[in-house]
Structures are given as C-alpha cells and as structure tokens.
Amino acid sequence: MSVYDDYEMTIGIECHVQLATKTKLFSPADNDARDAEPNTKTHQIDFGLPGMLPVLNKHAVELAVRAGKALNSPIAHVSRFDRKHYFYPDLPKGYQTSQMYNPIILAGYVDAPLEDGSLKRVRIDHAHMEEDAGKLTHHDGYSLVDLNRAGTPLIEIVSEPDMHSAEEAKAYVSELHKLMVYAGVTYGNLYHGNMRFDVNISVAKKGATELGKRAEIKNLNSFRSVERAAEYEFKRQVDILERGEEVVQETRGWNDDKQITISQRSKEDAQDYRYMPDPDIPPVVLTDEVIAGIQSKVPMLPGEYREKWSALNLDKSVINSLLSNQDYAQITLEVQEKSGEASAKRVAHWFASALTASDNDTNDDSTQTMLYAARGS
C-alpha cells in the first residue's frame, strides 16, 4: 500500500473558451490571429488609447447564451461587466473587462462519461464573459508584447471542486470540449488556444473535513496534459505534506517536456484585483423570448447522440471516434434515421476503422469521398 493511498485530491477547473466571432469582444478588430504578424489584428480600443469606448459584440453574447444550454445552465436576465485591475503589459489599459458580480451564465452541470461506462456529474458554478489578454514573449534581458489576442472574446467556465481523480478531470475537459464545439460556441482548436484549462488541485487526508491549500496549474491546452499535470501535482503535494511541510497557494505552469509543474507566482485572491463596475458598458438585458430563440438554434449535443445510438450497441471506442467529429456524428445519425440500425452500425464502424484521430481534422479528397459514400448508403 502506497502512502498516496492515504490522500485524496480535489480538483476544480476553470476553462477559457474562445468564442467563434469574426471580431473581438469590444472592438472591430479581426478575431482570427492565427499565424498573423504581431500587433496586426488590433484596434485603438485594444491599445487602450484615451477616449476609446468599447462596443459589446452582440454575437459574442449570443454564443454565451448557446453555451448556457450546453451547460444545463439558466441564463441571467441581467448581467454586467466589471473591471479587473492588475498591471500586465499585455493589456495596455491596465485592467481586464470581465464579469465578477453578475455573470451571464448561472449554475449548471456537465455529465462526463468515464472509462467504466458511468457518468461523473461536475457542477458548474457559473460562466462569465471576458476579454483575453495579449501575449508576452520573453528573451534574454527584454520582453516583447503581441496584442493580437488582446480583446478576444472568451467565456470562462468555472466548475465546482467535484473531481477527485486525474481520470475524472480528463473526462470532464474532454466532454466540455465536445459540448462547446457541438453547440457552435467555439471552433475548439486546442493548438491555437481556442480552449485553455486552469486546473486547481488540493490534497488532504481521506476523510478530512477541510480541503488543503490549492495550487493552480495554468493554461493547459490538451486533455492529456490535464490528466498528467493532475497526477504529478497530486504526488508533489503529498510528498510535501509527508515531509511535514505546508503546500503553498500559488500559480504553477506545466512543463510538457519534463512532465512536471513549475512555480510561477503566488496566487492572488479576488480582493487583490480591485474589481469595480465598468461605467462604459451598459448591462446586458435578455428576455425569456430572446434566450429561447437563441437556444433553439443549438444543434444536437453529444449526450443526445449517445442516447440515440444506444440501440446500435456500439463499442465505446466507436462512439468516441464518431463524436470526435461533428460531421461523422451527424451522418451516422442521418443514416440511422433514413436507412435503419444495420446500415448505421456499418457506417459507424466504417468511420471508426478508417479514420485515425489525426484524420478527424483533415478535409482532403479521400475524407470527402467517404462522407458522400456514407450519406448514400
């Protein structure tokens, strides 16, 4: 029996989701900064120039409302923006526009499938809209700033600390990614930072009534890194406690090459940011009719696909393969409804066996040929 068996980890995750808008949250600058030259996707508002007033992106609000449906969360009829103050050179105006006190998305939940076939329900505390910061590149003796991402529209989804293993954390972020992509909220490209995960981990003796001090691992951009960072951080904190020392509340980074977490800075509390209502942005007021109209356009979500495919008796690996690409899932269901279960099962296995994980993002001729053939089966 290992000493680690005496301890339990508790995990809460904050996920930043880049909204699939054409322009930024408060400026008309292009929201697609992929491979762009530094500081070319910017506007006077993003530079924080005097006299520049923000204009809220209506489409970003609509995408947040869509996200609420995917999170089983009610939408606030009135939400407001606040200023979160800190000195970072990647936000020239000196504060981040966020929603501290009146977020647009209220409490909900995500049911994440585990390897054993069970579901792990992770409660959502809330999700709020905010703008992203720019990017700093550090060199020997100086740093450079790229403001292409400054002002990019985000929703930050804050979970309750309901996860108690690295497997549960990985399952949650994987299902959250599917939900946001299927709902049309984000493009979901992890390589380009469309979704980033901040993993808060604390450790305590099993049966303890209080949680331990937490460390936050910032900006993880893959499901595997979430799992491995949680595994490493659990053991690191247990080792500290076993030596009779105290875990420090701090922000840590993940070194993927070394598979370790690294201390970055002490963890701030909310009062350190001096939140205040933003006087330049009016409240967002949404009626039940507006909310229902926006959410009626949300297509079928992963859980609904799984329910409809239950009659096909598909292996879990086949289902996961289909759900990794929304086109494949839609075609398989289309075949099921038009041609019956036998044809749908054949198409499902066809996709699962012919496509690898890397193929899921391709759009080459062979993939298109297979999609047309499946629709005609």
Rank of each mutant, 00 (worst) to 15 (best):
D5L: 05
M9N: 08
T21S: 06
T21A: 09
L25A: 10
F26P: 08
A29N: 04
D32Q: 03
T42C: 11
P50V: 00
V78S: 08
G94D: 11
G108C: 05
D116C: 06
A127K: 01
E131K: 05
D146A: 00
R149N: 12
A150H: 03
G151Y: 10
G151W: 13
E156S: 11
V158G: 13
E160Y: 14
E167P: 01
E167D: 15
V173G: 14
Y182I: 04
G184N: 04
K205I: 02
K206H: 09
K206A: 08
K213D: 10
I217P: 01
R224G: 01
E227R: 11
V247S: 02
V248Q: 08
Q249G: 15
E250Y: 05
T251A: 05
R252K: 07
R252D: 02
W254V: 01
D257F: 15
D272E: 12
P283T: 08
R306F: 07
W309D: 09
S310Q: 09
S317M: 11
S324L: 02
Q326V: 13
D327H: 13
Y328A: 12
A329L: 04
Q330D: 15
E334D: 14
V335I: 14
S343G: 02
V347R: 09
F351M: 05
S358R: 03
Y372D: 10
R375D: 02
